[in-house]
């Protein structure tokens, strides 16, 4: 089983310890995802993950993020480039893959990307969806959120204290929480990468971290990463907790973060991508593969050992998301189970 997580802006004013030591010219992927937001990819910040490579082409603005797995270059998101250069950079990337004797498979494409890829002859299918909450009108009042409010109250009654902190001062606690979290998943469990948020690295000055503690001991955290574009805000990215500390722990941490974001006037809280969820036949593009479409439904219904999509979705739906954003996978030729499996391989799932 593997675990995905999932994203803001400049380092924010008033965030303790967050200072920018990274200039724009040092991270080409960051330049690209901030400048070229036409696809509105809420997970774009994942391009900065350690171990994810950035492809650029001389004289062509923009960037492509990818990871090699077997003989595939697994591309994350679409091409982050100006509209007039999108096709050129995509072609340069596919040429580059050929030069490496690799095939391309592209994942977490947004609708904007998916339509371009389909025009270029890719077979494109929906693979899942991202979920987002509009914050200005968000409230936990009302019967709809009664259970959620009760869980949150219970966590605070158990002594939970939530605060926004500087990740660099909590490295030891984060390691301890991660170890306990992973240990509870069983012997074969290991942390996933690539399509999963992370703490540290080049992107850390741009993220925000909320930690929950009981009796001064950190017991859980949620990391939020920046989302750019018209639906800008933060993405509920990486979340971990020490098992069996208190019910409602993550919900309580998120509720504090939401109140902070609302106070700052942040318009969107994104919950990120969950594969096999939000599947909608009306969102498929011409030329989609019906077998692959069936497989996504089957994996949602019965693929919990491969990915716990239902439990991930259940957590996101607690917050009554206002927006479901379809996400796509693209194959350069016919739809391919082999390519699909290599998305998992790029994540370190096997």
């Amino acid at each position: 089983m593997f675990y995905l997580a999932g994203l803001a802006d400049e380092p924010q004013k008033g965030v303790p310890g967050v200072t920018s030591t990274v200039s724009r010219t040092e991270i080409p992927a960051l330049d690209a995802i901030r400048a070229y937001t036409q696809a509105e990819n809420p997970s774009a910040f994942l391009t900065l993950n350690a171990g994810t490579a950035t492809f650029t082409s001389p004289g062509v603005p923009g960037a492509v993020a990818y990871r090699r797995a077997g003989n595939y270059l697994v591309q994350f998101g679409g091409v982050f480039a100006p509209p007039e250069d999108y096709d050129r950079l995509l072609a340069a990337f596919t040429d580059f893959a050929r030069s490496q004797d690799c095939k391309v498979v592209s994942v977490q494409l947004q609708r904007h990307d998916a339509e371009i890829y389909a025009r270029h002859g890719f077979t494109v299918n929906q693979i899942g969806a991202s979920w987002a909450v509009s914050l200005p009108e968000f409230t936990l009042r009302g019967t709809r959120f009664m259970q959620l409010r009760n869980k949150i109250s219970r966590a605070f009654r158990n002594g939970l204290v939530v605060e926004e902190v500087d990740a660099t001062h909590y490295a030891g606690s984060i390691t301890e929480i991660d170890r306990a979290w992973l240990g509870a998943k069983g012997d074969g469990a290991h942390q996933l990468e690539f399509l999963v948020g992370e703490i540290g690295g080049d992107g850390q000055p741009y993220r925000r971290l909320f930690v929950g503690s009981i009796e001064d001991k950190p017991v859980g955290y949620i990391s939020y990463s920046p989302v750019y574009g018209t639906r800008h805000g933060w993405m509920h990215d990486l979340s971990r907790r020490i098992p069996e500390t208190s019910p409602g722990l993550m919900e309580a941490i998120n509720s504090v973060a939401i109140e902070q974001f609302r106070a700052e006037g942040v318009p969107w809280l994104h919950f990120g991508f969950t594969p096999f969820t939000g599947l909608d036949a009306t969102q498929e593009l011409p030329g989609f593969n019906r077998g692959y479409q069936w497989l996504m439904h089957a994996l949602f219904a019965q693929g919990g050992d491969l990915y716990p999509a239902q439990s991930q979705l259940a957590y996101k739906q607690k917050w009554a998301p206002t927006l479901v954003i379809p996400e796509y996978i693209a194959f350069p030729d016919r739809a391919s189970l082999h390519a699909f499996a290599h998305v998992f391989r790029a994540c370190g799932a096997f």
Partner: peptide
């Protein structure tokens, strides 16, 4: 991949 193509055709 042949199996997936066959399923597509069947569906």
């Amino acid at each position: 991949d042949d199996t997936l193509a066959a399923l597509h055709e069947a569906l």
